[in-house]
């Protein structure tokens, strides 16, 4: 069980940032998993009053405030008009509506959990995080940065006409994924992301001419994945099984993108 000595409703980001430099202090996300640890928190810093709970849209991008909940991004109609709706698809297996009404996008991404569905899906898109000190950083760089005391202010997803597809394999409907896979295609480029390996999601960017036959694309990509992405074992599945799943999910995602095929899964 966690303890909190003090609670601070931050009045601005500078205050939040400077408080967060103390190692005992913590920025609160949705607090859904706060009770999993035995954290002894000095000051709990709440960003709730900074207006960071909106999804803003302009001609080029979506800007999602860090305090937006997973349910917000799941039900946002304009966001899900893009990218074949993979954002909603990537969150709707996460436990239940109640949890998604609490869990925040900022908390989810900042933690960079290996099993994260959202991280996997967003990595396949042209996504950036806006950090208070670090500035705007591509999500693909952020995912590999060490955990520090910066603040993730918002998430920026560039609008483009890419097609995307997202599939996971789970042991049961509300479990964490055994493997998560997102694939997108845009302007001759393929992004293949594998998450819950069980290590952190990994993105492979493959520049491939679009008019190749499907099988060529798939086989080449699978070969590249085999060489570049490793899989580990935990009690949800062995590395060997994840490797098998990866091939199937990548294939089905590519198929979905090229032919609009529907395999459900």
């Amino acid at each position: 069980m966690f303890t909190i000595d003090n609670y601070v409703m931050a009045e601005n980001l500078e205050e939040a940032y400077s408080l967060n430099q103390n190692r005992r202090n913590v920025i609160l996300g949705g607090t859904m998993w706060l009770r999993l640890g035995r954290k002894k928190i000095g000051k709990a810093i709440d960003l709730s009053s900074l207006g960071l709970n909106n999804i803003e849209e302009d001609d080029e991008k979506f800007t999602i405030g860090c305090m937006c909940t997973l349910r917000n991004i799941e039900t946002n109609k304009s966001l899900n008009k893009y990218f074949n709706g993979i954002i909603a698809k990537s969150v709707n297996n996460i436990v239940g509506v109640q949890l998604r009404n609490g869990a925040t996008i900022g908390g989810t991404l900042f933690s960079r959990f290996g099993f994260s569905d959202v991280l996997t899906a967003l990595l396949s898109l042209d996504t950036y995080v806006n950090l208070y000190k670090g500035g705007i950083v591509p999500l693909s760089d952020f995912v590999n940065m060490p955990l520090d005391n910066d603040i993730l202010i918002n998430v920026i997803i560039k609008k483009d006409s890419r097609r995307a597809s997202y599939l996971t394999h789970r042991k049961s409907s509300s479990d964490l994924p055994v493997l998560a896979c997102a694939v997108s295609n845009y302007d001759g480029e393929w992004n293949v992301v594998l998450g819950a390996r069980p290590m952190k999601a990994k993105l492979i960017n493959i520049k491939k001419n679009y008019n190749l036959t499907k099988d060529d694309v798939v086989e080449e990509m699978l070969e590249i994945i085999k060489q570049n992405i490793g899989f580990g074992s935990n009690y949800r599945g062995s590395g060997k099984y994840r490797q098998i799943l990866a091939e199937v999910l990548v294939r089905r995602n590519i198929d979905e993108i090229i032919s609009g095929g529907n395999h459900g899964n």
Partner: peptide, 16 residues
């Protein structure tokens, strides 16, 4: 015991 919570020890939910 490794899976000592509903996060890790999954009982059927209604979608299962």
């Amino acid at each position: 015991m490794v899976n000592d919570s509903f996060l890790q020890y999954k009982i059927p939910a209604r979608n299962d």
